[in-house]
Write a protein that binds this DNA or RNA. Structure first.
Lengths: 115, 115
DNA sequence: TGACATATATGCGTCAAGCACATAGGTTAA
DNA sequence: TTAACCTATGTGCTTGACGCATATATGTCA
């Protein structure tokens, strides 16, 4: 039955999740992959392609900045850091999510209260 | 700033809104248009084309059934009623929305608690 | 030297959203 | 009476994000 919900295309909140993770410090795509699932918006793992595309787009929009890091072992990493503009956008996201949560709760309430 | 949120493509929850409205009794597209905004998931008015497409698709899936009503004034209306399967899907939607709201609240909490 | 983990990125098909537009019946006012 | 408007239901087209598969490259370990 639940397979009819939203055709599997729910909002994954990739952008705010990435920005939130970057609040804790600079990181790179592959590392972010393993952490943004913690927020509960993804069912399984985040698709790698998605992360990198979001990061690139967010850099175009000035929300993050990147820098290559070739130190350490393994291939070079593109390390991202959040910008002031990114912080503002995250703040707006949180405000939006708060309103959205309120609407959801009200909807659920309304449904539950009609026995 | 907020124009960067989700590129304006937030989840409108059209399907559960329609099902919820039909719980209060049979109705038709044009009438639903004026009521499903009450749930707070739409910024302005719902786009008419969207409603009718959803209703058609939901009828294909067996969530609603329709019947022409030529009585009364004005053009004929296609009146929809929710089915048992529609009720089950709505129930699943509500459960999903409840979990989703919890994730959102947790995210907001996490953000707010880091001063 | 072959398999595997790390790390980033592109290409392609699909699907829903958003918007404009088309159709048509009925009512009302100039 | 006819033009404008409200009711009512749909279709067509473009765009953009998503999901998946795939490509590329480096370093490590058996």
């Amino acid at each position: 039955m639940s397979e009819k919900l939203g055709s599997g295309k729910q909002d994954r909140y990739m952008q705010p999740s990435i920005l939130m993770a970057l609040l804790d410090g600079r990181s790179h795509g592959y590392e972010l992959l393993q952490h943004i699932g913690e927020y509960g918006f993804l069912k399984g793992d985040a698709p790698p392609g998605m992360i990198y595309r979001h990061l690139r787009q967010m850099e175009d929009e000035g929300l993050v900045v990147s820098q290559w890091d070739a130190s350490g072992s393994g291939p070079a990493k593109r390390v991202y850091a959040i910008t002031d503009e990114g912080r503002e956008v995250l703040d707006a996201w949180v405000a939006y999510m708060e309103r959205h949560a309120a609407s959801l709760v009200a909807f659920v309430e309304r449904y539950r209260s009609r026995s």
